[in-house]
């Protein structure tokens, strides 16, 4: 805008003084402005943009959506910025014949599949006089886990409480086994209660908490009260605590059950199911 005023002033001056070099300068600058528009367009044109998705997050956290931008046309696109409506633009352009990976934060409100809003690519390069922009609609959705209920606010189901919270009943000997039974071939040596053996009771084997003979706790959707978001939140807290405690658990959801397992993978599996549990089909 200021540039246009500058040009008009220059041309008026050149006309008044009938100054041909002045005209020349004005027209060259006008041409420069126009060429700048083409270059700005060129910075957007032919760019390769891939959405790499995001690591799942809990509702309320920032979804960090990653994009890979690649230039194959030999155009320096470093002055390219990406943003969602309402967020600060993030420099994202790759240099000529290079690629660049950027993370764009996106606020999440609730669990479930979150569609990505239209992405804006923009640049003011090369001259800073015009802004070229383009909207990209990304056909991708990201899973948002339910926000877990506050720690300690949810009690594990009573039936499984004893073995799922990680507090093991301590026998008076101080060893950490829930029960004892005679040794059978195939039992691992570490289960043998050596202290008993030393007392002459023969080989006995301790049965610990994650022995398969004892059922892991089952977190049940239907056992939770409240609307579906609240249930999902509580169950999320339970599975997170269970995973942190390193125990196995089962998760029973309407229409499905996730079998007994533990570890991070099972946790993410459960959270993913909880993210969409109880949501209408079109959202799930």
């Amino acid at each position: 805008m200021a540039f246009a005023v500058l040009l008009v002033t220059m041309l008026a001056g050149a006309m008044n003084y009938n100054n041909n070099l002045g005209f020349a300068l004005g027209f060259v600058l006008a041409g420069l402005g126009i060429a700048g528009i083409y270059h700005a367009h060129g910075i957007l044109d032919g760019l390769q943009l891939h959405c790499l998705g995001a690591e799942p997050v809990f509702a309320g956290e920032l979804l960090r959506v990653r994009f890979l931008l690649r230039d194959e046309a030999g155009v320096d696109r470093r002055e390219l910025f990406l943003d969602w409506p309402g967020t600060a633009p993030v420099a994202a352009g790759p240099a000529a014949l290079a690629s660049r990976c950027v993370e764009l934060p996106l606020a999440t409100q609730r669990r479930g599949w979150q569609a990505l809003p239209a992405l804006r690519l923009q640049t003011r390069a090369p001259l800073g006089l015009v802004r070229a922009w383009s909207w990209v609609h990304i056909d991708s959705r990201q899973l948002v886990y339910p926000r877990p209920a506050p720690a300690g606010s949810v009690q594990p189901p009573a039936a499984a409480a004893a073995s799922s919270t990680g507090r093991r009943p301590q026998s008076r000997d101080g060893d950490s086994f829930a029960g004892l039974r005679p040794y059978r071939p195939g039992d691992t040596p570490r289960r043998i209660v050596w202290r008993r053996y030393l007392r002459g009771t023969g080989l006995v084997v301790g049965e610990d908490h994650d022995s398969e003979t004892q059922a892991p706790p089952c977190f049940d959707w239907d056992a939770m009260a409240g609307h579906s978001d609240a249930r999902a939140a509580r169950l999320a807290r339970l599975v997170i605590d269970a995973a942190a405690a390193g125990v196995h658990w089962r998760l029973r959801l309407p229409g499905s059950e996730l079998g007994s397992a533990g570890g991070q993978r099972h946790l993410h599996h459960c959270l993913a199911r909880l993210a969409v549990a109880g949501l209408p089909a079109d959202e799930a």
Partner: peptide
Amino acid sequence: LPADITGAQIFERRSERL
């Protein structure tokens, strides 16, 4: 058994601990 690879908690006689 898996423990043959990964190792196991063994009762140590001297310290009377696993």
